[in-house]
């Protein structure tokens, strides 16, 4: 069982991700904002992190640089409403593994998660 951290502030999206990823056989933990995510990251090791960019308390970018500093091997998928080129480029430059834009297809997302998990 792989451990996935989902960082997202939209309750509907959280529920769907939790449901889908658990169905896929993962152990899913939820953080509703950047601060909560930091706490969970300190106490747990994750196989994959799925995060939004616009989060309460801690910006997505800050979170990504934190993860990259502490557990550089953990793959990160960004799930964001941004479609702007510079935002996506910034994310990839910071070492993000994949970028999915909202609205998203849950099936596609689950596939990408699986692919990244099997790589490591």
């Amino acid at each position: 069982m792989k451990k996935i951290l989902v960082i997202e502030d939209n309750p509907m999206v959280i529920k769907s991700l939790e449901f889908k990823l658990t169905k896929d056989g993962n152990d899913v933990m939820i953080a509703h904002d950047g601060r909560e995510a930091m706490k969970l990251l300190k106490d747990n090791a994750f196989d994959l992190i799925l995060t939004d960019l616009m989060l309460p308390f801690v910006t997505g970018n800050e979170l990504i640089s934190y993860i990259k500093k502490n557990t550089p091997k953990t793959p990160i998928i960004v799930l964001s409403t941004s479609t702007q080129e510079n935002i996506i480029m910034d994310a990839f430059n910071m070492g993000v593994d994949d970028f999915i834009t909202k609205p998203f297809s849950p099936n596609e997302l689950s596939l990408r998660v699986r692919r990244l998990l099997s790589k490591n």
Binding site: G34, M54, L55, F57, V58, T59, E62, S82, Q84, I87
Partner: peptide, 11 residues
């Protein structure tokens, strides 16, 4: 400042 940085706006 931190809370300003996390405002929901694209640019």
């Amino acid at each position: 400042v931190r809370s300003l940085l996390t405002i929901n706006y694209p640019s």
